[in-house]
């Protein structure tokens, strides 16, 4: 891990505007955080805290009402930043008419990868997520766990420097969760910067270097896992989390 900031959010604000009365309610309220190169950062929070909105701002799917979001020194969503990131959305639903193989090929072509390079990368990633045998099945026949695995593979097709995963372990059985944890550990060992949201605190505790706790759009706490588990006076991450969210 180096001291270079790879992900920076400065004073992010985002409101939800009701469609009828145009009433504004805050989703993110002055959110600032930084993630350093090679770090694995877990964003925790109860439902509706603004975790997914944060990730969507960082990958450029939505724009903040105010504040700055930078990824690898570029404004979030800029093509130069997008070339170097990988994103897994929450509950991924892909193209039911495609096979897993065709889908990965499609994603690789969006990055303009060369045929040979793409083929090798696809084989490597299908192996990594354990989908080689099912790659030629239509995606409409995939279980939720298989879609999640394929989602992980597509997020890594461009060998990204920064990885954004939104609830990567949601809907997975214990074996699937273990596999995702292993993939995260491998990516971590390769020096990737990883930013992910999760409700599954034991998994976060195993993989993350640092966590932030988001409550009603505000970052109420941010600590390293080491500090929480050793010197923070908390039994585990769950106790830390519940204390911070006031549960």
């Amino acid at each position: 891990m180096t001291g270079v900031n790879v992900i920076e959010a400065r004073g992010l604000k985002k409101d939800r505007v009701s469609s009828f009365l145009l009433k504004r309610s805050p989703i993110l309220d002055d959110l600032s955080l930084t993630v350093r190169e090679g770090e694995t950062y877990g964003l925790l929070g109860p439902n509706g805290a603004g975790k997914t909105t944060t990730v969507k701002i960082l990958v450029g799917l939505i724009k903040p009402d105010s504040g700055d979001a930078l990824v690898l020194g570029q404004k979030a969503g800029e093509p130069e930043a997008l070339k170097q990131i990988g994103f897994l959305p929450e509950n991924p639903y892909f193209y039911s008419h495609l096979t897993g193989y065709e889908f990965l090929e499609f994603i690789g072509q969006l990055f303009a990868l060369k045929k040979k390079e793409l083929k090798e990368r696809m084989a490597e990633l299908l192996e990594l997520v354990g989908m080689t045998a099912d790659a030629n099945q239509p995606m409409r026949k995939y279980s939720k766990g298989m879609l999640q695995r394929l989602g992980i593979a597509q997020s890594l097709i461009n060998n990204p420097k920064v990885i954004f995963w939104d609830e990567p372990m949601s809907g997975l059985d214990p074996i699937g969760r273990r596999d995702v944890r292993k993939i995260l550990e491998r990516l971590k060992s390769e020096g990737k910067t990883i930013f992910f949201n999760s409700h599954l605190l034991p998994d976060v505790s195993d993989v993350c270097d640092r966590v932030g706790v988001l409550v009603k759009g505000k970052l109420v706490a941010e600590d390293s896992i080491k500090d929480i588990e050793r010197g923070g006076g908390y039994k585990d991450l769950e106790e830390y989390f519940l204390t911070k969210v006031g549960g």
Partner: peptide
């Protein structure tokens, strides 16, 4: 509707 747009617009596609 299928949220496949998330996969496209987080890639370098204008």
């Amino acid at each position: 509707e299928r949220r496949t747009i998330y996969v496209i617009f987080t890639k370098p596609v204008s």
